[in-house]
Amino acid sequence: MIAIEIPEKNKFLYMPENLAECDAKQYADFSKLLWMAQEKQISYDQLCYMAVYPLLNLRKSKKKSPEKYENIIRLSEYIDNFFDKDEEGNFTGIKLEFTKNYLPKYRLFYSYYGPDDGFSDVTFGQYIDGLDEYIYYSKTGDIKSLRMLFSIFYLKKNEVYNYRISKKRAEGIFRYVDIRHLYGFFLFFSSMQSFVLQGEIMVMGNPIDLSIIFTKDEKDTFESTIPGTGFRNIITDMAESQVFGPYKGVEKTNLWVVLIRLYELKKKELDDKEKNKTNDSTRA
């Protein structure tokens, strides 16, 4: 948090330095501004200026003065902390380093509940369906995919995920979901996706580096930035091996159970390759 002193009012304000330090309201309001900037409805400078108010929980005053305007401009410089930049200072993206769902519930006639922190209650099939929508929205900006991504994960209490029901909601009642929540969840999914691709989890006290799951073979020339439909092949492969039962069994298995199993399989594959290299060099 950044402490900001206002001497004339003998008051301290605290501004988050990144999304991970926001409360639910700050997160939702800032998510909307990020979406507006992405849609080119506002510029980056306007984003920074407008973000000062929700991040400091300030109300916009009807009275405008040059001094107040200058103060907001100075404070808006802190918004740069929310973004990653390269060595030359060029913007590269928003910092996504959190596994907490800041918007766990949405009320629209009924209460709909999003995934727990860290996707701890998400099934592998649910994640794969969400990943498809996430990738499509990232490429096209299609609001329908953004709604569908939200609909896949926000369910009624104790409801079991069903793709057809989620699709019906996305095309129906979820057309009225506030963009704060739609894009706010997209940012959460983005952060979790980065964690899945690069994160480290603890299993029985041992660190597990998930990134090895996506390690490419030296002979593989295929380039991809995000594993998309290839993940669906994992369901088929695991269904054939009967590790978690048939196809539907893999889909309904907890995401982290599947990822840990994939880690074990990948580690065995890499260990076997290393062992074969050692054996070959010994024979030589």
Rank of each mutant, 00 (worst) to 15 (best):
D280T: 10
K144L: 08
D272V: 14
Q126K: 12
V160G: 00
S31A: 15
L146Y: 04
I212E: 07
K168T: 09
L19A: 06
K63W: 05
E200G: 00
E77Q: 12
S43N: 05
G230A: 07
L56G: 04
K219W: 00
D237R: 10
N90H: 13
A51Y: 03
K32S: 09
E218W: 04
A37F: 14
I94H: 08
N276R: 15
K62L: 13
I165S: 11
Y27V: 13
C48V: 01
S224L: 07
T99V: 12
S241Y: 01
I235N: 03
K248F: 05
S190P: 07
S120E: 14
D121F: 07
F189V: 05
E67Y: 11
K60D: 08
Y49S: 00
S190N: 11
Y106L: 13
S120K: 14
L75W: 03
T278F: 14
G245N: 05
Y137G: 05
L155K: 12
K167D: 12
K157L: 10
A20E: 15
I173R: 13
L187D: 09
Q46G: 02
V160H: 03
Y78A: 11
K62T: 08
Q198E: 15
Y106D: 05
Y78P: 01
I226N: 07
V52Q: 02
D23V: 09
Y263R: 00
L197E: 14
G199K: 06
L103N: 07
P227W: 08
N233T: 02
F91D: 01
V243A: 12
E87M: 13
Q193P: 01
N254H: 02
Q126G: 06
K216W: 01
Y106F: 14
D121G: 05
D272E: 15
L187E: 07
L149N: 05
K95A: 09
I135G: 06
N206R: 11
F244T: 00
I212L: 14
N18T: 13
P16Q: 05
R180E: 15
T278A: 15
F186W: 13
F109V: 09
R59Y: 07
E8T: 10
K9I: 02
L13G: 04
K95R: 15
K11V: 02
N71D: 11
I201Q: 01
V52I: 10
F185Y: 15
S190H: 11
K267C: 00
I226V: 15
I235Q: 01
T225C: 05
P207H: 06
S43D: 07
L265Y: 01
M192D: 08
R147V: 03
V250S: 04
K68T: 12
V258C: 01
V196T: 13
F150D: 02
G93S: 12
Q193V: 06
I2D: 08
E17L: 10
S65W: 01
D84V: 10
